[in-house]
Design a protein around this nucleic acid. Structure first.
Lengths: 231, 231
DNA sequence: TCAATTTTTACCAAATTTTTACATTCCTGG
DNA sequence: CCAGGAATGTAAAAATTTGGTAAAAATTGA
């Protein structure tokens, strides 16, 4: 089944474990790339689009759960957490943040390999387009992973909230998202009926990603319901 | 339709554990059905099509791994194995046979619930492309989930009420719906005899989804009764 | 502190819904 | 088969809701 070599990204700060995983997994026809911390891991994931991510939670710098969240912002690639922390709450947090599995150290490599196969089996049945988090049209290009937006090859700078809004719209490209959904996703659920927030930020976003903000081509209004990013 | 209530099949011979799971999971908006052995489990799965299966491996009679294999013969429903056996080879065998996760007793219920959410998350993203809420004819295409309507490949924009009306008609495609039913479904039951509302909106809808509104091909009048969307 | 960003406020324009009015079609009984 | 009332179609206005816009105030981060 693994006739095609699957690319696996290992995000782990302890070198011995990395070496150990490399030795074992390369014999099993996995191709490995390694990162020592969360930032590097996210960058490598954006660049190489691995089929699977093995993530240590006890990383220096960026929090592990935060790495999961950020990755999930633009990618559906399976994430298996490997951690020394065995507390139940740690597991729940990681899994709810978007991880697909959680292994506590020490673990058997045969079990790890089996769980990796489960993950790859899942993504095989799902769509094979690994261009998630990327939007293209004639004039607009967005890469969520690299946080890059270009309008007619001109770099566009988005603020944090503008970017979060665009992210959410891209995750539902083609579909209409209601004002409520937007407010809950971009702000918190408390402000789910402060209807004007979305209006104002849609306007700002349009002024940046639409060639003509008065006649939007990408971010359309569905009066009485919400907005839609055409796909 | 309460989308939150997922049907879970528990295949477990020890009654105390079944009771324990029931007590915990029913509070979490899961609906449970129980089986005491593999045969019964497979029969119940075939009959009720649960969204998730919790399977104990140490069952009397039919071997646990065999249950997984048989279930996988005709179903892709997620399977979480719960087992007292913690040997690595047991895990590998179960996962490779088609299980999605493997928990060793004793386990925390919060972790179990989190892992169940992971499984349901997976099947949610997969089964999104089902053909529910889609209408096709030679010239007309409607996708309720995406809130998208096309007439001869031309995007058609519907207002909130027009869309609600079309939704309701699609839910009863082929059948005649009375004016009263329409008014109650699209407006509130107070206005159930403001008969002219439906007339006016049927007209507007026709002008948008019929190639020739004067000679409707999809949305037909049943004089004296109501309207019908041909299926 | 200053510049950038987010939050708040206010007002105007556009889209949609509701109301009103009248025309046309359908169907039944004579 | 034809008249006449009921049912349905059509048009356009008034009323209301919703969205777009501008700009000031508050907050944040370097």
């Amino acid at each position: 089944m693994s006739a095609t070599e699957s690319l696996v990204l290992v995000i782990e700060d302890e070198k011995p474990i990395r070496c150990f995983l490399r030795a074992y997994l390369e014999r099993r026809d996995f191709q490995l790339i390694e990162a020592e911390d969360g930032e590097e891991g996210l960058a490598l994931a954006a660049e190489h689009r691995p089929a699977l991510v093995l993530l240590d939670l006890g990383l220096p710098g960026l929090d592990g759960v935060e790495v999961i969240r950020r990755l999930r912002g633009w990618s559906a690639t399976p994430i298996i957490v490997i951690s020394a922390r065995g507390k139940e709450q740690d597991k729940v947090d990681a899994l709810d943040a978007g991880a697909d599995d959680y292994l506590t150290k020490p673990f058997g490599v045969a079990e790890l390999a089996a769980r990796m196969r489960v993950c790859l089996r899942h993504s095989a049945t799902r769509s094979k387009d690994d261009q998630q988090g990327v939007y293209r049209s004639e004039e607009l290009f967005v890469d969520l992973a690299k946080r890059q937006v270009r309008l007619n090859d001109r770099e566009v700078r988005l603020t944090k909230i503008e970017f979060k809004l665009l992210s959410y719209l891209m995750q539902n490209v083609g579909k209409v998202v209601t004002h409520r959904q937007i407010l809950k996703a971009v702000w918190d659920s408390d402000r789910a009926d402060q209807l004007h927030y979305s209006r104002i930020y849609v306007r700002q976003l349009r002024s940046k990603i639409e060639p003509d903000a008065a006649a939007p081509r990408h971010l359309l209004t569905e009066t009485g319901v919400g907005y839609r990013l055409v796909g």
